[in-house]
Design a protein around this nucleic acid. Structure first.
Length: 638
RNA sequence: GCUGCUGUAGCUCAGUCGGUAGAGCGCGUCCUUGGUAAGGACGAGGUCCUGGGUUCAAAUCCCAGCAGCAGCUCCA
C-alpha cells in the first residue's frame, strides 16, 4: 500500500506501484476522464507514471494551465505526424507551445501553403480519432545520440539538454519524437485544434542559419473555446488600426514613402488633442518646451555616440559638401541647447520637453501601420539635475505618466526596471545611486514592478511602462532612462554650490513614446469609437428631410461656435440611412431634427452604440456635451 | 534584412482553359421629402503594381524589381 497526499491535504491509500491514471479513477470517474497529466512531488509527469508511498500527487486537467500546455504540446506532436505523413521528407526541428497554441519548426524544402492546412487538419483528425496512446521511452544520452545519428536538429536538441536520461514519445506505430514530455494519455485528448499559419523562422533565431518553416496551430479543450479564440482574433482584426485608419479616413500610407504616415484632417484632430493634452501637462509639471532641428551636422552624431551605435538606422544627407544626418533621437539637440548658456545648480531641476520628430531607418520587414514607422514624433523630455534630485524627479515623472494613461482610458499598467548591463559606462557608485533612486521612487509610489537584471542601456538604468488595452494586449509606451554618458560626451556642466563645475545627471523620459504609435493603440483600444474629447467629429445633425435643413444648419452652427466639432448630413437620404452612415463613422452623438424639434428648439439625441433617443433642448445637449469634452469624460452616455 | 503569400475601380473583392474588364459599397446627376442602423433610376470611374520575357494573343504563364501582409531577426 502507498499513502499519497492530494492537493487538498487529504491522504489516499492506493496499491503500490499504482499509476496516476489509477489514482484519478480512485478519486472519481469524471476526473479520470478529464485527467491529462499529473504532478508528483512538484514534477510534471505522464498519467502512466507510478506513485510511491508518501508522494504529493496532483491530477491535472485542461482547466489547469499545465494541462492546457500539455494538451497543446501533444497536439503539436499530432500535427508533426500529420505533416510527416503528407511530406515524408520532412525533418522535425522543434515544437514548443506558445501563448494560445503551439508551433512546430520543420525543415522541408517544399513550401507549405495555407491551402494545405485543411489536409494537415484532416490527417490530424484521423490521428486524433485513432486515439493511440502516447508512450514514453527513456534511454541514456549516448544511446539517444546513436539513435539520432545523422539528424543534426535533434542531435543539437539533445546537446542542449542537461539530463543524462533522454526521453522519446511515440503515438501509434508511425511516429516518434525526442521530447521531454509530459504528454496527454492519448491522441484523442489533444482537444479542438486548428492549423493557423505558416511562416519562416531561423534555426535558433540566427539569421545566418537556415530558414525553417514554422507551422502555427492552436488547440483548446473544447470546440466552443476554440471558436471563442477564433472570435477574439476576429475582434482584434476588426479593431486593426490600419483598417480603421482607412475606413475612418484618419491617415494613410503611400508607396512614395514606405513607413511614413500621412495624417488626414480627421487624424490631425486626434493628433492635436493628444498634443494639446500633453502640452497642458508640461505646464502643470513645470516643463519648458524647445524645438530642435531635424537635420544636424554629422559631427554631432559622432560625438553623441550614435555614429558608433546607431549608424545603420540613420538617414544621411549632404549640404554644401558637408555631411549631415537626419536625427533619430532628440537628446543631442537638447544638449546643444543646454550648452548655449552657463547653468547653476539653482536652476535645477531643469525640465526641458520636446515634441521631436525623428527618423529611423527600420528594416523593411518590421514596419507595421502606425506601430512601427520610419518617421515619428516623440513626446520627449530631458531633465537636468543633481544626483540627490533624481528620486524626486522620477516620482514627478511617474505621476505625470499615470495621469496621462488614466486620461486616455488605460488603467492596467505594468512597470519594469532594468539594471546595469555587463557593458556599461560610469562608476559602480553612480549606477548604485541611480538604481537606488529609481527603486526608491517606485517604492514611494508603492508600485509593483519586475526587475530585468542587466537589461539597462549602457548609459544608465531605466524604467519602462506598459499598458494593457481592452483585449489585454500589452504595449510598451513610457520610459524613464538615466543617462551618465551624454552629459559627459557633450561636456555639459553646471556650477555647484561650492563654485566648482560638475556634470549634471540627465534623465530621458517619454510618456506615450510616439504619437503615431499611441494613436494606433488608442484606435485599437476603442475600436475606432473614440471618447468624445478625442472624436474627430463629436456630433452630427441629421435632418429628417430637407424641410428642416435650415434648422439643422442653425443647430450645427450654434454647436460649432460653442466649440463642439459638429457636422451635418444634409443629403437627401432617409433618416435611417443617415443614422447607419453616422454609426459607421463612429460619431458619438447623432442629433435628429425634424419639424417637431424645429418648433421647440430641441434635438433628438441618439448616442453612438445605443438604439434609444431622447429629445432635449439644444442648450441642454450643448451643456452636457461641452462638459463631457472639457472633463475628458471617457463615456459617451447621456 | 530573411522566408512565404498577395498586388484588378476610391474601398472590399470576383475574373473559368491565355482571347480587349466585373460586382457590392463609395462618388456624381435625377427622382423621392421620409421620424431613428442603408428607398429608386441613370452615370462617371481601370497604367489589371512596375519593367522585361514566352506567345498570333498575357490581368492570367515565367523572371526581376517595388509595395503590402504574416512570421523570424531587429527595435542601445
Amino acid at each position: 500500500m502507498a499513502r499519497i497526499t492530494l492537493p487538498d491535504g487529504s491522504v489516499l491509500e492506493v496499491a503500490d506501484g499504482a499509476t496516476l491514471r489509477q489514482v484519478a479513477e480512485r478519486i472519481g470517474p469524471g476526473l479520470a476522464k478529464a485527467a491529462l497529466v499529473g504532478r508528483i512531488d512538484g514534477k510534471l509527469v505522464d498519467l502512466s507514471c507510478s506513485v510511491q508511498d508518501g508522494a504529493q500527487v496532483q491530477i491535472i486537467t485542461a482547466k489547469d494551465a499545465e494541462g492546457l500546455d500539455a494538451m497543446r504540446h501533444s497536439c503539436a506532436h499530432v500535427m508533426a505526424e500529420a505533416i510527416c505523413r503528407i511530406w515524408p521528407q520532412t525533418r522535425l526541428v522543434y515544437g514548443p507551445t506558445v501563448e494560445d497554441g503551439f508551433y512546430y519548426d520543420i525543415d522541408l524544402d517544399e513550401p507549405i501553403r495555407p491551402d494545405d492546412f485543411a489536409r494537415i487538419e484532416a490527417e490530424m483528425a484521423e490521428i486524433a480519432k485513432a486515439d493511440q496512446p502516447f508512450v514514453r521511452q527513456e534511454m541514456g544520452r549516448n544511446e539517444a545520440l546513436a539513435k539520432l545519428a545523422g539528424d543534426k536538429y535533434k542531435t543539437d536538441n539533445i546537446q542542449r539538454v542537461d539530463s543524462e536520461v533522454i526521453s522519446f514519445y511515440s503515438h501509434g506505430d508511425g511516429f516518434q519524437d525526442l521530447c521531454r514530455g509530459p504528454h496527454v494519455p492519448s491522441t484523442g485528448k489533444v482537444g479542438a485544434f486548428k492549423v493557423m499559419s505558416v511562416a519562416g523562422a531561423y534555426w535558433h533565431g540566427d539569421a545566418t542559419q537556415k530558414m525553417l518553416q514554422r507551422v502555427y496551430g492552436t488547440a483548446w479543450p473544447t470546440k466552443k473555446e476554440l471558436d471563442e479564440h477564433l472570435n477574439r482574433l476576429e475582434e482584434a482584426k476588426r479593431r486593426d488600426h490600419r483598417v480603421l485608419g482607412r475606413q475612418l479616413d484618419l491617415f494613410s500610407f503611400s508607396e512614395m514613402g514606405p513607413g511614413f504616415a500621412f495624417m488626414h484632417p480627421k487624424g490631425m484632430v486626434i493628433w492635436n488633442e493628444i498634443v494639446g493634452f500633453l502640452g497642458g501637462l508640461n505646464r502643470k509639471y513645470r516643463y519648458k518646451e524647445i524645438k530642435t532641428p531635424i537635420i544636424l551636422n554629422e559631427e554631432l552624431w559622432r560625438r553623441s555616440g550614435h555614429w558608433d551605435h546607431y549608424k545603420e538606422n540613420m538617414y544621411f544627407s549632404e549640404i554644401d559638401g558637408v555631411g549631415y544626418a537626419i536625427k533619430p533621437m532628440n537628446c543631442p539637440g537638447g544638449c546643444l541647447v543646454y550648452g548655449t548658456t552657463k547653468h547653476s545648480y539653482r536652476e535645477f531641476p531643469m525640465r526641458i520637453a520636446e515634441f521631436g520628430m525623428v527618423h529611423r531607418h527600420e528594416a523593411s520587414g518590421v514596419m507595421h501601420g502606425l506601430f512601427r514607422v520610419r518617421q515619428f514624433t516623440q513626446d520627449d523630455a530631458h531633465i537636468f539635475c543633481m544626483p540627490d534630485q533624481i528620486e524626486a524627479e522620477i516620482i514627478g515623472v511617474i505621476n505625470l505618466i499615470f495621469e496621462t494613461y488614466r486620461s486616455f482610458g488605460f488603467s492596467d499598467f505594468a512597470i519594469e526596471l532594468s539594471t546595469k548591463p555587463i557593458n556599461h559606462i560610469g562608476s559602480d557608485e553612480i549606477w548604485d545611486t541611480a538604481t537606488d533612486a529609481l527603486k526608491a521612487a517606485l517604492a514611494h509610489k508603492e508600485i509593483q514592478y519586475k526587475i530585468n537584471e542587466g537589461d539597462g542601456a549602457f548609459y544608465g538604468p531605466k524604467i519602462d511602462f506598459h499598458i494593457r488595452d481592452c483585449l489585454k494586449r500589452s504595449w510598451q509606451v513610457g520610459t524613464i532612462q538615466l543617462d551618465f554618458s551624454m552629459p559627459q560626451r557633450f561636456e555639459l556642466v553646471y556650477t555647484a554650490e561650492d563654485n566648482t563645475e560638475k556634470v549634471p545627471v540627465m534623465i530621458h523620459r517619454a510618456v506615450l513614446g510616439s504619437f503615431e504609435r499611441f494613436m494606433g493603440i488608442l484606435i485599437e483600444h476603442y475600436g475606432g469609437a473614440m471618447p468624445v474629447w478625442l472624436s474627430p467629429e463629436q456630433a452630427r445633425v441629421l435632418p429628417i428631410s430637407e424641410k428642416t435643413s435650415d434648422y439643422g444648419r442653425a443647430v450645427q452652427r450654434r454647436l460649432f461656435e460653442a466649440g463642439v466639432r459638429c457636422g451635418a448630413d444634409l443629403s437627401d437620404e432617409k433618416i435611417g440611412a443617415k443614422i447607419a452612415k453616422t454609426h459607421g463613422e463612429k460619431v458619438p452623438y447623432m442629433l435628429v431634427v425634424g419639424p417637431k424639434e424645429a418648433e421647440s428648439d430641441t434635438v433628438s439625441v441618439r448616442v453612438r452604440g445605443s438604439q434609444d433617443s431622447r429629445t432635449m433642448p439644444v442648450g441642454q445637449f450643448l451643456e452636457t456635451a461641452t462638459r463631457k469634452i472639457a472633463d475628458k469624460d471617457l463615456g459617451v452616455e447621456f
